[in-house]
Simulated scan of single mutants.
Amino acid sequence: MADTETFKRIAIALPEVTSAPHFDRLAFKVKRIFATLAADGKTANLKFTPEEQEFKCMVAPEVFQAIDNGWGRQGWTTIDIAAASDADIEAALAMAHAHAIGPAPKR
């Protein structure tokens, strides 16, 4: 199973990623934030599309859980780092990162 250092290493290795404090979390950003790591390092939040979120939560409910609020309805999903494999983290971060480098959402 993975740990906080693994999460940080994989996230920061993605192209053009920077990290900085964001409230009580550590945020990972390209053009916009795509992941935030909880201060205790046990969980992180990732930005998926709602469809990706539904799939991840269905396939691996012990690893992924939709955030139960408006942010969650937009695709923000919690990953339990200890329950995740390195491959889970790598795939999830790559997916969230791809959205962050794409075109800005239309309003």
Rank of each mutant, 00 (worst) to 15 (best):
D88P: 08
A98L: 08
D86T: 15
P61G: 03
M58S: 14
N69V: 02
G102L: 11
H99Q: 13
Q65F: 02
G72C: 08
T78I: 03
V63S: 00
E90Y: 06
D86P: 06
L93Q: 02
A60G: 03
T77A: 02
I101P: 02
R73A: 10
Q65H: 09
K56F: 13
A83R: 15
N69A: 05
D86H: 10
V59N: 06
F64K: 03
T77G: 03
W76V: 00
D88V: 06
A60S: 13
Q74H: 13
W76S: 01
I79F: 05
I101K: 14
R73E: 11
A84L: 12
A94T: 12
A94V: 04
G70E: 13
P61Y: 04
A60I: 02
M58H: 11
A66N: 10
V63P: 03
E54F: 05
A60C: 05
T77N: 04
S85I: 10
A92V: 02
V59F: 07
V59M: 12
A96N: 00
Q65R: 14
M58L: 11
G102S: 14
N69C: 04
T78F: 00
P103R: 13
W76C: 00
I79V: 15
C57L: 08
R73V: 04
K56H: 11
T78V: 04
W71E: 03
K56Q: 12
I79C: 04
P103E: 13
E54V: 11
A104I: 11
A83P: 05
T77M: 03
A91K: 15
F55P: 00
C57W: 07
D68M: 10
F64H: 03
W76N: 00
